[in-house]
């Protein structure tokens, strides 16, 4: 009996101690880190959270809404204080964010938005329309306002794919001598970008330009073009990755649009911290961050989704 009470006392002591000493947990959920953009987000969020004294659990949903649901369950079960999310679909992610909210866990969205307001505390996204217009205008200039071109579009479940395409076309469609010969989704993927480009080249050998919804698809397209002996074709991406920076400096890809991915992730954590401490971020839920055009003039200053 005595032994038992000592044991239970010890247990209580241990539990209390662990409650006192365990740091609050922030769960960071992003798409696969294969794409350096998402890796940079995760690294940025993690660094800031640790700096502010949180424990961090970093998870990837691989753009699978079901997996994302499970990750939210994990976050809820682990008693996370906040979730930093780059989501797996503008519509499919509404439910898990709401579930977390009902469980008392605020979500802070980065990069991709959801099609419902009032569920997440913050949604910090790049000003993709402004960025796409920058990319589109640079593309038009590089093309000399004429020629046949291809567009590689992003993932259908992501509003960023739609908005970038819209921005490109709002600019490019003003020039009647620029003719689109193929427009396909390569799902943000480098391998798909390569494969889709390969078959597009076979069907339309006369191509002068390729405009892409992100950098990984641009890398894939550039590789396919070079393999087909068409290394002079103008390729423009979107993201501002180090891979594309190096490609620009090597004279292959001509331009991209920098999204401040690292900074956005850090801002989300700062806002989460402020929200947890004061009950408000002091900012509107939906926040746009302007993008910057990157070409051979400023590419050298680009490092991990930020200009030095």
């Amino acid at each position: 009996m005595k032994k038992l009470s000592i044991a239970s006392l010890a247990l209580i002591f241990f539990l209390t101690a662990s409650m006192v000493y365990a740091k609050d947990l922030i769960v960071v959920i992003t798409p696969s880190h294969d794409n350096p953009f998402f890796k940079s987000e995760a690294v940025g969020a993690e660094a800031k959270a640790k700096e502010l004294g949180y424990d961090v659990l970093s998870l990837v949903h691989d753009d699978d809404a079901n997996k994302q649901n499970e990750l939210f369950d994990t976050a809820i079960a682990r008693g996370a204080k906040a979730i930093i999310l780059d989501n797996a679909g503008a519509d499919a992610s509404i439910a898990p964010v709401e579930r977390a909210k009902n469980a008392g866990i605020p979500s802070f969205l980065i990069d991709r938005e959801i099609n419902k307001n009032g569920l997440a505390v913050s949604q910090i996204v790049s000003n993709n329309y402004q960025g796409a217009k920058l990319g589109g205008e640079e593309f038009v200039k590089l093309m000399g306002e004429k020629g046949n071109y291809v567009e590689l579009v992003g993932k259908e479940s992501d509003t960023n794919a739609g908005i970038r395409s819209q921005g490109y076309h709002d600019v490019i469609d003003q020039y009647p001598d620029l003719k689109i010969v193929a427009r396909q989704s390569a799902n943000w993927s480098q391998t798909e970008g390569f494969e889709k480009m390969e078959s597009i080249i076979q069907a339309n050998p006369d191509i002068q330009g390729v405009i892409c919804g992100n950098d990984t698809m641009a890398m894939g397209a550039m590789a396919a073009l070079k393999a087909a002996g068409k290394g002079k074709v103008i390729v423009v991406g979107f993201d501002g990755s180090n891979d594309v920076r190096d490609s620009i400096l090597a004279g292959d890809i001509k331009a991209t649009v920098l999204q401040p991915a690292y900074r956005i992730a850090q801002m989300a954590v700062e806002q989460a911290d402020k929200y947890l401490k004061t009950g408000s971020t002091g900012l509107p839920e939906k926040q746009l961050m302007d993008c910057v055009l990157i070409n051979d003039r400023n590419a050298a200053k680009l490092e991990t989704f930020a200009l030095k």
Binding site: N117, N128, T159, I163, Q166, G167, P284
Partner: peptide
């Protein structure tokens, strides 16, 4: 006008 009053970036654009 606030971005938060619109469903997504497409509407806002």
């Amino acid at each position: 006008i606030s971005f938060t009053d619109f469903t997504n970036q497409l509407e806002f654009a």
